[in-house]
Design a protein around this nucleic acid. Sequence first.
RNA 1: GCCCUCGUAGCUCAGUCGGAUAGAGCGACCGCCUCCUAAGCGGUAGGCCAUGGGUUCAAUUCCCGUCGAGGGCACCA
Length: 558
Amino acid sequence: MGRYAPPVTPEDLAVSVRAAVLEWVSQADLILEIPAELRLERPKSRDHGDYATNIALALAKAAQLSPRVIAESLAPKIAEIPGVSAAEIAGPGFINIRLDSATLGQTAQIIVETGAAYGTGTALAGQQINVEFISANPTGPLHLGHTRWAAVGDAIARVLVAAGANVSTEFYINDRGVQMDKFGASVMASAHDQVIPEDGYQGAYIHDLAAAIVIARPSIKELPIEEQFISFREAAYALQLKQQQQVLEQFRTHFDFWTSERALHESNSVEHGLDRLRAQGHVYELDGAVWLRTTDFGDDKDRVLIKADGECTYFASDTAYYVDKRERNFDICIYLLGADHHGYVNRLRAVAACNGDQLDQVEVLIGQLVKITRGGEEVKLSKRAGNIVTLDEFVDEVGVDAARYSLIRYPVDSPLTLDLEVITLRSNDNPVFYVQYAHARIASVLRNAAELGIAWQSLDFDGGLLSHERENELLGALAEFPRVVAGAAELREPHRVARYLEDLASIYHRFYDSCRVLPRGDEELTPEQVARLWLCAATRQTIFNGLQLLGVSAPDRM
RNA sequence: GCCCUCGUAGCUCAGUCGGAUAGAGCGACCGCCUCCUAAGCGGUAGGCCAUGGGUUCAAUUCCCGUCGAGGGCACCA
C-alpha cells in the first residue's frame, strides 16, 4: 500500500497500472517496451468491471509468455493499487479492474469543484493552430454547405481550445476575380431595372442589395458607367459581407480573422510568399508561366502560380496565404473543405512542404454535402437565393441549437440528410432535445433542493454511498469526459462530444428512474441523498460543459 | 483511365489508432407516473458489419482484389 498515488481518474489509474507493469517487468527480469501511455478501456459490459486492460495480451509475444501467465502476475499488483477493489483475469488474458465505490464516488466531488474547467486538459498545450473554414465568396448569402462548416469548424476550434491549444479561427474572403465583377454587374443591372446577365447572380437578394444601395446613395445612378460599376460592386460587396458576418455571429460562430484575398495582393503578401518559395527552390518557369513544383511532395501535377498573361492564379493566393499564416506563427493550419475540393488536398500539403514545413502541418478535412428534407421530401428552393437553402433560412426554421447540434453530431466525411420535421421535434427522436432535457431535468432537481432548503454543497459528501449499479454507471461515464474531449480534439472530431452527451444523458435518465434524489414529504434528508445531489450537480456540469463545446445552449427549464 | 470518400438492423446513422455477446434513435409489439420535468424509463422483435482473399492469439476495424454509391481530375474562381 501507498506505493501508488490513489487513482481518481482513468488517466491516474492508467499511470498506476503502468507502474505495476514496470514493477513486474523488473522483478521478472525481462526487457520489454512498455508504451508510454497505457490505455485503459471502458468495457461495454459492466460485468467486466469499471476498466479493463489488454496489456497482458499485448506483451505476450515479446515476453514469450502466455497472456494468462502474465495476467496472473499482474493482477495481484493491480489489485493493490489504492482505490482498486478487485482485479480479475478474464477471457484470453484481460484484466478487469473494479474500483471501490468511495474512489469512484469522489469523481462527483471533483467535477463539481472543477466546474467549467472540467473536461479541459493539456493534450495539445503549446500548439498554435489556425482553423480556416467557410471562406465563401462575398457574392451571396451563405448556404447549407457553409452552415455545416460554420457549426463544425467552430466546434473544432472550441474542442482544440479545451485540449489546451492556442487557436485562431479564420475566414478567407474570396473577394478577387471575375465573380466579383459578375456580382457587381448583376446588382447594377437590377438597380436600372435591366435584365440580369445570364452568367450573373440571379437570386432575389440581388434586387434587395440594389435597392438598399440606391436608397443609401441615390446619386450613384448618375455616375459615369465605369465608376458606377465599381461603386455598385464595392457597395454590394460591403453589404453582402456584413450580412454574412451578422448571420454567423447569430449562429454563434465567431472568427478571429477575416482575411481578404484582395488585401493579400495589395499588401504585396503574394509577391512576398512567392519569393519565399523561390528561395526554397521549388519555383520554375515554363512556357511563359511560373510554376510550383508540387509533384516533389505528392501532388499529381505541378501547379501554375502566374499565368503566361501575367495574372496570378487563385492557387498563388492560396500559397501566399499559407506563407502568411506561418509567418503569423501558426504551426498547424487546418482547412475545412467541401468534397468537391478534395483534389486540393495534395497540393495544399505540398505547399507546406515547398515552404520547408512538414506535410502534416497542413490538415485538410473533407466534408460531404448536406441535404435537407421536410417529411421526406427534399427541400431545395430558397425564396431569396434561388435554388439553394441559405444558412439564415435554415436557422430561422429550426433554431440555432438544433441546427448546430444536428450538423455537428455526424462525422464530416459522411453525407448528411437532415429532416426539418425531425430536428424540430421535441422528443426522443431529436437528440439535441434529449440532451438538453437531461440538463433541464437536473436543473429542476437542484432547484427543488434549494427550495427545500437543502444546502448540499456545505454538507459532507460521502462518495462511498454511491454504490447503486446506476450510480456506478453514471460516475464511470462522467469520468470519461476529459478523455472524450481530448480525443475529439486530437482527431478533429467534435461529433464525439455530441455522441458522448447522448450517452451520458441516457445514463442519467436511467439513474433518475431508479434512484430517488430528494426526500419526499416529511422524510429526513439522508447522507445518500446528499451524495446523489452532488452526483446530479456533477452531471449537470458535465452536460453543460459538453454543450458549451458544441456551441449549444443548456437550458435550465424546458 | 487515375484519385478521394463511403457500403453496419426495415429507415436515419454511431462504433473501428485490432479485443471479450456489434450499438442508438425511429418504425413494430408489450409494460411503467397518487412520487424530484413521462420531452422520461424497462422489455420483445430485427444483423453472414457489401463481397472474396491476406496479416494476427484476436479483424466490422489494418492490407489487397471485386461489386455498388457519391465526388474530383483547369495557365477557372
